[in-house]
Design a protein around this nucleic acid. Sequence first.
DNA 1: AACGTAGCAGACAGATCTGTCTACTGCCAA
DNA 2: TTGGCAGTAGACAGATCTGTCTGCTACGTT
Lengths: 215, 215
Amino acid sequence: MPSPSSSPAAATETDATETDASTARATGARPSPARERILETAFALFYARGIRAVGVDLIIAESGVAKATFYKHFPAKDDLVLAYLDKVDGVWSGQLHAAAQAAGPAPADQLVGLFDALQNACRRDGYRGCGFINAAAESQPGTPVHERTVAHKASVLSWVEDLARRAGARDATTLARSLTLLLDGGLASGTLDAAPEAPRAAKEAAGALVAASLA
Amino acid sequence: MPSPSSSPAAATETDATETDASTARATGARPSPARERILETAFALFYARGIRAVGVDLIIAESGVAKATFYKHFPAKDDLVLAYLDKVDGVWSGQLHAAAQAAGPAPADQLVGLFDALQNACRRDGYRGCGFINAAAESQPGTPVHERTVAHKASVLSWVEDLARRAGARDATTLARSLTLLLDGGLASGTLDAAPEAPRAAKEAAGALVAASLA
DNA sequence: AACGTAGCAGACAGATCTGTCTACTGCCAA
DNA sequence: TTGGCAGTAGACAGATCTGTCTGCTACGTT
């Protein structure tokens, strides 16, 4: 049984404070140890087993909280799911930005460097793809959960597009689209093939596309 | 309520005969009208709403079959799920091959042309991504359902790799990997963005990667 | 004419899942 | 000291889901 902090997105940032603050900001709920324990547990379980596959009873038992407490913080399971997705978004975006920055100051390098985040994610054990894509597969278009996924992907796309524009790409929109396609493909198929070739190929292809777009 | 034949993969081929035969071959079960009705219904419902979200009771009601008949043909729900995945595999592989062939006899053209299948798939309404990726998101690694997904992706990859080799690519393995990444990315994000830009960008990127790999 | 097979109809058992409700325990602040 | 708040413990209702079982009909074959 993996500890919560060793889960898909072991945050390198200071967990408690940062996460508390951003969660509170996003959801309007004030932080509390019990709430945080629930969210942490849900984060690990939802990601590892899927959302529908994990019942609230399990989360309650695993997080050592009373049922009434659970429903006080999250009036319905869906509210917890949304909070979970916000957490996934925060962690994954953080890793993406960090990987990009680590590649240096040039936007063109950052466009390629961001793929290191993919490689790191795939390497982690217990890796089970993109939490958002998985959530979307379990939800219907039009539901809050699904919309949250759409919003996340749109935000990543616009960030990459901005990078592409600053890199001076000929067609920043298309380049950004292609790169996120590569990223999503790596994310989606990372579960299906333990080999590290996929993320490597993704980065290589990204390099070729970026280069071709600048030439 | 969509008719079964208007579902994700409206097969252009002659349905009854071809599908019956291939299903029987794959699963070892003899065909029967009731069985086919069940499978057809499951195909539409599983794809549209997700596997866990659809109960056997609904499939039974929708396909107008008795419960005992259902369980005679599919002793457990998982058996139906597996048959469903085989059907998805058959249809999608068929579309992929058809799109590739339509691009002409040259393997290099086929590598790019196969992306038309993606475009067509995304355009269909009720499109909800790749049945396999969705199924994988709902299943645990190691289960038959998950393994079936892995096998499907591996078979697509090896087909593309063969094409790449015959096209004379410098590094056929990596090129194939990149192209399937692009394909999976398009498949996964097609649900999240109705715009037809994604498949277009995928094909464009594929063209660039193939060209670069032959130069 | 008898029989086996495929199918229909629906009750039933048992598990599981979400969400509500009651009752009790500490703790802190007015 | 009293009242409010966060939390614990767990019973309970109602829905839903998988899988079993009993009985019946219809048809084609021998």
